[in-house]
Design a protein around this nucleic acid. Structure first.
Lengths: 252, 252
DNA sequence: TTAATTTTGATCAAAAATAATCAAAATTGA
DNA sequence: TCAATTTTGATTATTTTTGATCAAAATTAA
């Protein structure tokens, strides 16, 4: 059994029992206490459980978890991309973070940095609000309840009022032919604003989206500085993107 | 049993019995008095209970966790004021809600209405995000982590971009002599913006704040349409306010 | 007030849990 | 396939937690 599997099982077990000891977990997962401790340490660092002496407790904050983004948790590919992306962030940076699930995963790798984050994502806000070294600027505007993010004209105006060193964004499609594409106008207008107001634009994009096109064409390849993707990306496709002058980084 | 578990049990036990002795707790938790004393010391330091000689007492206003706002819960006076204030809200209204604890209490009385809410308060956001009939416009700007609210110039600009039918605001002090007063410039600039951009301004204010002055003078009595307070308000003081043309509503 | 009692905080040894280290096993990549 | 890397589990040293003891402080009773 690998870490990802154990992580899932630990979190499931903790959902039922509020707290479990290292030994109880060792028995459930048929692993040694040493392994369980390592796992619990890692998972606690992600903020998905509370480590206690002798075991772990479920984390409970209904409101906060309401905003938390679970879709990318347990997705090792997105985690790798996020970690790579976070390595570009330095103390003192001002960064834009958009509301994609891969970008959200960056949060856990940003917690030790001293930065200013400008975001329209409520999960990002919830994740970083307790980090003293990070100042948050929340983008205002209409709340999109399903995406747990802010959008609309007012949000775009807000972004236009700032300049960031780096923007970390996601897209729904990326190809040589059509550049960056998105599902909706709302998303694309926000992303466009981020691109316009950032020194460097980092695109976080798993392999499945490369060479794929979505509905709204909103930016050319030249607006992106670096593409961060996973090792699963097709070499032909990434090669073609590189030929267009795009810098491609493979995470992991 | 570890500290985290005991902490939880101690707080739960204190929620039921208002106060417990070290020995009662030692029996409940099956731990030694020495351990209980250490625990109580630690928990008291977090501000989650009051240490007494021989035991501990429940605290009224536990520290807020996450975005949830607990300070005004179980405060019948604030609830009454909030309910009265909410009765002024009609379907179709666009309203400003500020980040005070009494205003926050309005949320539970607003859930059945079809309205648009413009707010800088994260607790309000968290409380209303799951209500389908309510559209939320979040004010953007710098995040004040301790107040769990947005403030700053950008936030004021944001508010200036809208007009609402009604604004529901709180203050730290209210008197005939000094009008509305607040603890900080940040709060007052936001409140001023709400007042400027609302058709009607409703001030939610428990009796203790009437006749009291705080530090920043930011608006005159004439900027307020209606004061909603509780039956504990001094009749002389409310009378003086009424003589200045202020409409005073007593909740409950 | 003083004396008796209770509670506390400090200290310490025992017990429990952890982190660190290292070799074996499993996985990965060439 | 084999070498390199990662992961795992066992061992050991370190840290944390606990309960007992006891003097000092606080509270209560007289």
């Amino acid at each position: 059994m690998n870490f990802q599997e154990r992580k899932k099982k630990i979190l499931t077990a903790l959902d039922q029992a509020d707290s479990l000891s290292v030994f109880e977990l060792a028995e459930i997962l048929e692993a040694s206490p040493a392994t369980i401790r390592r796992d619990l340490g890692d998972i606690a660092e992600e903020g998905l459980l509370v480590r206690t002496h002798g075991g772990a407790m479920r984390i409970e904050n209904p409101v906060l978890t309401g905003f938390s983004e679970k879709s990318a948790v347990n997705n090792p590919v997105k985690e790798q991309i996020a970690e790579k992306a976070a390595s570009y962030v330095q103390d003192g940076d001002i960064i834009f973070l958009d509301c994609g699930s891969t970008v959200f995963q960056m949060c856990r790798f940003l917690k030790k940095k001293s930065i200013r984050v400008i975001t329209n994502s409520l999960p990002v806000l919830a994740e970083l609000i307790d980090v003293p070294s990070i100042q948050i600027n929340l983008i205002g505007g209409e709340l999109d309840k399903t995406r747990k993010a802010i959008h609309g004209d007012k949000a775009v105006q807000h972004i236009n009022g700032y300049h960031a060193h780096k923007a970390f964004i996601g897209v729904d499609g990326l190809s040589v032919e059509n550049g960056l594409t998105a599902h909706s106008e709302h998303e694309s207008s926000i992303t466009t604003a981020f691109i316009r107001n950032a020194g460097q634009v980092m695109l976080l994009c798993d392999a499945s989206k490369i060479g794929r096109d979505s509905y709204v064409k909103f930016a050319g390849l030249s607006s992106i500085h670096t593409l961060i993707t996973d090792p699963g990306a097709d070499a032909d496709k990434t090669g073609a993107l590189q030929q267009q002058g795009l810098r491609v980084e493979i995470a992991g």
